[in-house]
Design a binder for these strands. Structure first.
Lengths: 224, 224
DNA sequence: CGACTCTCAACTGTTGACAGTTGTCAGAAG
DNA sequence: CTTCTGACAACTGTCAACAGTTGAGAGTCG
């Protein structure tokens, strides 16, 4: 476990527990806390400079997000997902995002899809310029997609699932070839959304996510 | 707020916080805690016979389930849903359950759908015998449906949404006519599942839930 | 040598007290 | 009468200490 410290109260009057949630989420997703690792309340709270109370609250919240696993009287563990669980998560994500895509395609106000278009163009130039393998704006695309669906409950559920997926595949950054293919697929999905073709958008998005799952699974099953 | 007391540790070694979650969830869903009502940590913890620590943990967990709303430095409130939010929740539920239905229809092992069939028959006799308006097994049908999809993440998400819907329409028990219609619709859905027709199952389930939403909305908009 | 028991250290669950914040209400000013 | 101000009461956020549980390892017995 790497050292950590509580960020200054930049976020106004956020409570210790709130800030701890953000810090821990980052630590879990960036690998500072490895899958399978057990969290020690005393050590962690000292590292964060707070007492165990707020830390426990943060741990409980992340548990309900699926980013931690709680065992009574034993503590919190960073979950290590199997490829089967990863597939389950992707299946759930497919259900949620294809629903969002249908909602967007049927929207009357079409100003939102333009936002998606510009975001994609930015991503394209970014990918060309620095030849980055990561395609960091992949999350942006899906995030924007969900936001445009304008259903808070849907957004929350989908983001929770995406966070768990990020954790499950945190060990494996996607390959350069996959990044470019993903961008192309995003473009296809966008075209369907612009055209208001809900069925096509849902079908393309499903295929896109299934390819992403395949990519992630192959990287998960063949570890370092 | 009605009085409450902590149940004896029948559930083996469940922690105080665990049991408090169950108690509070029941109190919220059965109306002991009214929508809009504010929870007082001191009073509630005394009523439950525990200290504020475990109670706070229970409150935080129910908050992440969507059954409570937390305002910093102000406390926890039982959410009062608008008809728009109820529609959002139903929309999300439709996405999740139609996905589950598709998965079931495509299952190779068809022993599960038989379980659904017998459950429906039981419900029919129950409805005929005591002429109950509540159709208490409605939740059973949808719960079984989800369980058969065999995706833990999907089950958890759907149950969270269903719980919020139950809270949103807690004030309005469904009408007798609606109960019988719902049973008939369940039978249609089941038939599609038995036949392995994923599209039909999804379409019928969507229609079923949309009618349920209409029913709930009319009762919500025309309060007592 | 293996299995069983007992002790113990480490840790989580819980508690009661303290600190900081929020909304309220009486009273003064306009 | 309305509006602002400032103290106060009630409550949530936080802390440090206590209690109960768990897993591990030394020691013992077969």
């Amino acid at each position: 476990m790497a050292g950590a410290s509580m960020p200054a109260p930049l976020d106004g009057d956020a409570t210790y527990a709130d800030r701890s949630v953000a810090v821990l989420r980052t630590m879990i997703l960036d690998g500072s806390l490895s899958p399978g690792e057990r969290l020690n309340e005393v050590h962690l709270s000292q590292a964060l400079g707070i007492s165990r109370g707020p830390l426990r609250e943060a741990v409980r919240r992340l548990t309900s997000e699926g980013l931690l696993h709680l065992v009574p009287h034993r503590g919190a563990f960073v979950p290590a997902f199997t490829s089967g669980q990863l597939a389950d998560l992707y299946q759930l994500r497919i259900a949620l995002e294809t629903h969002a895509a249908r909602l967007i395609a049927e929207l009357e106000d079409r100003s939102g899809v333009e936002e998606l278009a510009t975001a994609l163009d930015d991503a394209a130039t970014l990918l060309d310029e620095q030849d980055s393998a990561a395609y960091p704006t992949d999350q942006d695309f899906h995030g924007t997609l969900l936001r445009l669906a304008a259903n808070p409950a849907l957004i929350e559920a989908a983001e929770s699932v995406s966070a768990r997926i990020s954790l499950a595949r945190s060990r494996s950054a996607s390959q350069p070839a996959r990044a470019r293919a993903a961008l192309a697929e995003h473009r296809e999905i966008l075209a369907a959304l612009v055209g208001g073709d809900a069925d096509a958008a849902a079908r393309l998005l499903r295929a896109h996510l299934e390819r992403s799952l395949d990519n992630a699974t192959s990287l998960l099953d063949a570890p370092s």
